[in-house]
Amino acid sequence: MKLKDGFILSRIAGKVVAVPTVGDLDLNMMISLNETGAFLWEKLQNDVSEEELVCALLQEYDVDEATARRSVTAFVFKLKENGIIG
């Protein structure tokens, strides 16, 4: 899976946010990301599997596998729910 095109990630007022750059349907949409979210977002710029995301989290952060898996599942679910990954 991979993020759909048309989002820009940026740091504003100390927060990491993703904003859509195309279309005006979601003109007012802004996705606020925490540190883990921003990390996963960067990974999802390329085509990756959930398994690969879990591995990446485990490499980058000091977390156990169950926690990493839960984070990834929850994050991916939210992105799918909002139509941000295809």
Binding site: I8, S10, I12, A13, V17, V19, L27, N28
Partner: peptide, 29 residues
């Protein structure tokens, strides 16, 4: 400022040209 962020995005004119987005986001910051 972070609590005002959604409003800043909503109330500012966004770029029509996608290539201006990095500048736009920097200006919001």
């Amino acid at each position: 400022a972070s609590q005002a962020l959604a409003m800043l995005i909503q109330q500012s004119q966004r770029p029509a040209d996608k290539s201006h987005y990095p500048q736009y986001m920097e200006l919001l910051d």
